[in-house]
């Protein structure tokens, strides 16, 4: 069988991940020529602080979008979890382990609630999480008002600000790398991952062939809740304070990163490599722009066009590929 046949060079070069990688490299070259500080390794390591929390949510969002769903309540979950931690810290004076527990538990339960409404009642994910978008952050506002909580125990700061031992490697970065490896393995090597692709492609067929579609979808939403809780812990620790407007607008940027990474918004296609490259490309691009004093909001223009290209390019590449393929078969 030709399944083991080597892929021709042109097909490798036309993979979206490869194109993404070249764009990533180009971005680094341009940035480092604009600012001599950009390529400093300490600088780059330190800058990962700015986008690791987002990156952690990008991973389960990848699962959800591959499965054909979407979650726009993640930033709301961050706000809610952070508020609970803030109140617990301020009024009960609990320690770091309890704070972590509260953050994770809040995220998990809220995510599970989303999942329950989506799978048991059958409400579309976009509608449920749109409600969640308002509800979760709304509860945060209701609890905190215009107050900010800044009283966190000292040891809590390590999670979002600390480095591993004496190195220059941020703790957050390591957490993300471990998670990315686990998510990559689950997506590409396990039955769970395979089922995600099957559901995202053709959920009726998946159901008819004995895949428990709703259990997997529920699990995805519980998972993204849990990791949003984790992101909330890290973010709260990093900035050392909680306001109800914490992390606002993140949901859309997270979705942009996932789609930019080559995951089809209709579900059923995507891979971990593209998504990870996308995370770093967007994160470092924002950092680079910051170095040359381009405000973050202007960076949105670049992100927007990139997103359009990301969707247009693979489609036209695939058309080109299949044209060449049919020509080869005809020969």
């Amino acid at each position: 069988m030709n399944s083991t046949r080597k892929m021709p060079i042109w097909r490798i070069l036309m993979q979206w991940e490869v194109i993404l990688f070249f764009m990533f490299v180009a971005m680094i070259v341009v940035n480092s020529s604009l600012s001599p500080y950009f390529l400093d390794s300490n600088n780059i390591l330190r800058t990962t602080f700015n986008f690791m929390e987002k990156a952690i949510i990008v991973l389960p969002m990848m699962f959800i979008i591959i499965c054909g769903d979407i979650d726009i309540s993640v930033a709301g979950i961050i706000a809610l979890a952070s508020s609970f931690m803030g109140l617990a810290s301020q009024h009960l004076g609990v320690g770091t382990p309890a704070l972590i527990f509260i953050g994770l538990l809040t995220g998990l339960s809220v995510g599970a609630l989303n999942g329950l409404i989506i799978t048991k009642i059958g409400v579309p994910a976009i509608a449920v999480t749109l409600a969640g978008f308002f509800l979760f952050r709304g509860i945060a506002y209701a609890m905190l008002g215009d107050m900010a909580v800044t009283t966190y125990p000292e040891s809590f700061a390590y999670l979002g600000q600390g480095y591993i031992g004496n190195t220059r490697v941020p703790f957050e970065l390591v957490v993300f790398i471990i998670l990315a490896i686990i998510f990559g393995i689950v997506l590409h090597k396990t039955t769970y991952g395979l089922n995600l692709f099957a559901i995202g492609n053709n959920s009726t067929a998946a159901r008819f062939f004995g895949i428990n579609v709703n259990r997997i979808r529920f699990f995805n939403f519980a998972l993204i809740g849990l990791l949003s809780g984790l992101a909330s812990v890290l973010l709260t620790s990093r900035i050392g304070s909680t306001r109800p407007n914490i992390a606002s607008g993140w949901e859309l940027e997270i979705i942009v990163i996932v789609v930019l990474g080559g995951v089809s918004i209709f579900g059923g296609a995507g891979n971990i490599l593209g998504v990870v490259i996308s995370i770093f490309m967007v994160g470092l691009a924002r950092f680079g722009m910051g170095l040359i004093n381009v405000p973050g909001i202007v960076m949105n223009i670049v992100m927007g066009f990139l997103l359009l290209i990301a969707v247009l390019l693979p489609g036209s590449l695939r058309q080109l590929q299949s044209k060449i393929l049919t020509k080869q078969q005809q020969r």
Partner: peptide, 30 residues
């Protein structure tokens, strides 16, 4: 073999043959 939805379009031949019950190793791994 269902009419129309017999196959999952974007998955490959192997994954389709084993749809819903892939062969595994160490229980969870494909």
């Amino acid at each position: 073999v269902y009419q129309e939805l017999a196959l999952v379009d974007k998955l490959d031949v192997v994954e389709n043959i084993f749809l819903g019950r892939p062969l595994t190793k160490f229980r969870w791994f494909v």
